Amino acid sequence: MPELPEVEIIRRELLLPLLGERIVDLEIDDKKIQIHSMDILNKVITDLIRKGKYLFLIFNDSSSLLFHMGMTGSLIYTKAKENLRFQRARITLSQGFISFCDARRFGKIKYLTENEREKVMESLGFDPLLSEYSWNNFEKLLINKTLPVKNFLMNQAWITGIGNIYASEILFLSKIHPEKRMKELTVQERKSLFDSIPLILNQAIICEGTTIRDYQHTNGSSGFFQNCLQVYDREGKPCLVCGTPIVRIKMAQRSTYFCPRCQKI
Rank of each mutant, 00 (worst) to 15 (best):
K140L: 13
S74M: 14
M71D: 13
I109V: 14
I143R: 11
I58N: 07
F97C: 07
Y111M: 13
Q95M: 03
D102C: 02
K81E: 14
L124F: 08
L112D: 04
A89F: 00
L66E: 14
M69F: 15
N83D: 13
M121T: 02
S99H: 00
G107H: 11
E118D: 11
N60M: 08
S123K: 14
I98D: 00
S74G: 11
G125W: 03
F56H: 08
T92Q: 11
S99A: 13
S63P: 04
S131Q: 12
Q87M: 14
F138P: 00
A80M: 10
S123T: 07
L75F: 10
N136M: 06
G96W: 09
A103H: 06
F86P: 01
S94E: 04
E116K: 07
F106G: 01
A89K: 02
D102G: 02
I109T: 01
V120G: 03
D127V: 13
L130C: 09
S123M: 07
S134I: 04
K119M: 13
M69R: 06
L142T: 08
Y133T: 09
T113G: 08
P128H: 04
P128Y: 03
R85N: 08
N83L: 12
K53H: 08
L65P: 04
S123Q: 11
K119Q: 14
S64G: 13
R88F: 05
F67K: 11
F138Q: 05
G107F: 08
I109Q: 05
R104I: 06
S99Q: 01
I109W: 04
L112S: 01
K140I: 07
E132G: 14
L65R: 12
N83R: 15
L75S: 04
N83H: 13
P128N: 02
F56K: 10
F126W: 05
D61C: 10
I109C: 04
E114W: 06
E82G: 01
L112R: 02
Y111E: 06
E139I: 12
I91L: 13
F67L: 10
A80Y: 13
E82Q: 15
L124G: 05
G70F: 11
S64F: 10
K108N: 14
E118C: 02
N136I: 09
N137H: 10
K108A: 09
I76G: 00
R88E: 01
D127E: 13
K79D: 12
L84M: 09
M121K: 12
G73D: 05
E122I: 03
S94T: 13
K119W: 00
T72Y: 01
L112N: 03
I76Q: 07
E139H: 06
G70L: 12
S99W: 04
G125T: 07
G107T: 11
I58Q: 08
E139P: 00
R117K: 15
E82M: 12
L142V: 03
L130H: 14
E114Q: 15
F97Q: 04
E132F: 06
G96F: 11
R117T: 06
R90V: 05
A103W: 00
A80H: 12
K119H: 09
Y111W: 15
K110H: 07
R105Y: 05
L66R: 13
F59L: 08
L75H: 08
F126T: 03
N115W: 02
L130R: 15
Y133K: 07
L129K: 07
A89Y: 02
F97K: 01
F126S: 08
I58S: 02
F59G: 04
K119V: 10
F67N: 06
Y54Q: 10
K140E: 15
